[in-house]
């Protein structure tokens, strides 16, 4: 009886260790995905840098960018990254409701960013400054479109994992998925630093 209990205990421990290792391996694989994504963004940014003066007598960055708009988008992303951090704290403390609350706040900040992005690019396209106008605008729309798609996928994942937390609570599988989503979300904020430093600020000097 006691022998059985002891071996069961060791079996559980081995199983828990294997589960932890599997989670670590997934996080590692996710890092490799993030690095490959970083290469995509680096190349789109390099393409933009090459094209930034190829306006084909169309509108230039000075006419199109507004510093306050870029600053507001930066603040929304920074706020969402921070609130996702607070969600991670709540997850570690195993507080289901606080996790959901911070994930909702993160979602709203991210949604605000996407709304600003769509309104900005819609206004540009309506004013005749769409991606067809010049090499500069093609590069700008490609870069920001790719970025917006990433943020949108992040928002969908926040909703999906939020529903999973609400339905099943913070079980180890959801926690491990949320941790990788956190990596993705913080990574996107880092990419945005590169975008505002290479696209928006130099375009307004």
């Amino acid at each position: 009886m006691t022998d059985g209990a002891v071996t069961a205990g060791i079996g559980d421990q081995i199983e828990a260790e294997a589960a932890n290792r599997a989670i670590d391996e997934r996080a590692y694989g996710f890092w490799i995905y993030l690095m490959s994504d970083a290469i995509i963004f680096a190349l789109l940014l390099a393409t933009f840098a090459v094209m930034s003066h190829s306006t084909a007598d169309g509108p230039s960055s000075h006419a199109l960018f507004r510093l306050s708009h870029a600053f507001a988008k930066t603040m929304l992303l920074l706020a969402s990254s921070t609130t996702f951090g607070f969600a991670s704290v709540a997850i570690a403390a195993e507080q289901c409701r606080r996790t959901l609350a911070w994930l909702s706040v993160t979602f709203l900040f991210g949604l605000g960013f996407i709304a600003m992005e769509i309104s900005e690019f819609h206004a540009m396209a309506v004013a005749g400054a769409g991606p067809w106008r010049s090499g500069f605008l093609s590069a700008l729309f490609t870069l920001n479109g790719t970025y917006g798609a990433h943020v949108s996928v992040g928002l969908i994942l926040i909703v999906v994992l939020g529903c999973e937390v609400a339905r099943r609570g913070l079980n180890p599988f959801v926690v491990s998925r949320l941790r990788r989503l956190g990596l993705f979300w913080h990574f996107l904020d880092i990419v945005w630093i590169a975008i505002f430093s290479i696209v928006y600020l130099p375009g307004l000097i």
């Binding site: 921070t82 951090g85 607070f86 991670s88 704290v89 997850i91 570690a92 403390a93």
Partner: peptide
Amino acid sequence: NVTPKPYL
């Protein structure tokens, strides 16, 4: 991850 301090 437990404390909010690094995020702040």
